[in-house]
């Protein structure tokens, strides 16, 4: 790739957005840490500080992206900059894969090792003899005589109801965004807007069902964050995925607005593609979730 060269390089001008970003992040996490440590009923400045930080981050994203979009529309970015952006997005998605990898690793370890060991599997595991005698290990169910925090009595979400529906929704959204991409390349702006709009709506629908599922879990299934390691891995994995879907949906909506304003051309639409990659990534993570969290 080093051989496709430009005559001149592009170096962006100085910018205050990075320092705004760094300060915003600091304010957010400093507030969050204070908030987490506040005693119940005690006010403290943590909570307001956290929300101020979040507002600053949103403002920063708005301002930073606006300046980048304006530079892009002004035609300042050459092919080399475009390749740098692409690499940046690809490696960012790779880092996200590894982030989810940590939580999947926790799921596999808990399910294949930690819980069976508590149930007496393997050699020299003494907890089963001396601490929780007679505990029969089972994943996603409350065995009798087990560790007190392993969940009490809770039920798991059946895979073939809402989760299946959500799988179909996300898979369809993968199709609609591909239709939109092809339309963008072919210059059919109307199909582009419809396809992309449908993707945004499907994303919202997914989130609505996911929220519904959480409400069901808490109200009727007694499945909560505190439901032992099952509840922990369940909510951590689906919750982080849900956050990514939220982020992806917001990004898609912004791209929709940009498309409606006539941004992007047949050959130059990295912003669109980056969000599409991200959406496909979120999609693939869901398939793994569906399989390992719900079905198996």
């Amino acid at each position: 790739m080093g051989h496709q060269q430009q005559d001149v390089y592009f170096v962006p001008s100085k910018s205050y957005w990075p320092i705004v970003a760094a300060v915003s992040m600091f304010v957010t996490v400093f507030g969050a840490a204070h908030w987490l440590n506040a005693q119940p009923g005690e006010g403290g400045f943590g909570k307001p500080l956290f929300w101020v930080g979040i507002a600053m981050i949103l403002g920063m994203f708005f301002g930073w992206f606006r300046s980048v979009i304006n530079e892009s529309l002004a035609g300042n970015y050459n092919g080399q900059v475009d390749r740098s952006f692409r690499m940046g997005m690809m490696w960012f998605i790779f880092s996200e894969v590894m982030f989810f990898g940590a939580f999947f690793g926790a799921l596999f370890y808990a399910r294949l090792f930690a819980v069976p060991w508590l149930g007496g599997e393997g050699h020299g595991v003494l907890t089963h003899q001396f601490v929780w005698q007679g505990y029969e290990a089972a994943w996603g169910a409350s065995g009798g005589g087990g560790p007190e925090k392993i969940g009490g009595s809770f039920q798991t979400i059946p895979a073939w109801g809402l989760p299946l529906l959500n799988t179909l929704i996300l898979l369809s959204s993968g199709v609609t965004i591909t239709i939109a991409h092809h339309a963008l390349k072919a210059g059919h702006r109307k199909t582009l807007l419809i396809g992309l709009g449908a993707t945004v709506l499907l994303g919202c629908l997914f989130l609505w069902f996911q929220a519904h599922e959480y409400a069901e879990a808490y109200e009727h299934f007694n499945l909560t964050l505190g439901s032992g390691v099952y509840g922990a891995t369940f909510f951590m994995l689906t919750g982080f995925h849900g956050m990514h879907v939220t982020l992806g949906t917001i990004m898609l909506a912004i791209i929709w607005v940009r498309c409606a304003k006539g941004h992007f051309s047949k050959d130059d639409h990295f912003g669109f593609e980056a969000v599409a990659w991200y959406w496909h990534f979120v999609d693939v993570v869901w398939l793994a979730l569906f399989l390992f969290v719900y079905v198996l």
Binding site: M98, A102, A106, P147, I150, G151, G226, A232, M236
Partner: peptide
């Protein structure tokens, strides 16, 4: 990112009642 995931689980264990690293919760 793996470190970020590990410390995030520490955070939820401390503040949000999860039991990733607590044998009494499996």
């Amino acid at each position: 990112p793996v470190l970020a995931g590990a410390v995030t689980m520490l955070l939820t264990d401390k503040y949000f009642h999860t039991n990733f690293f607590n044998a009494a919760g499996g």
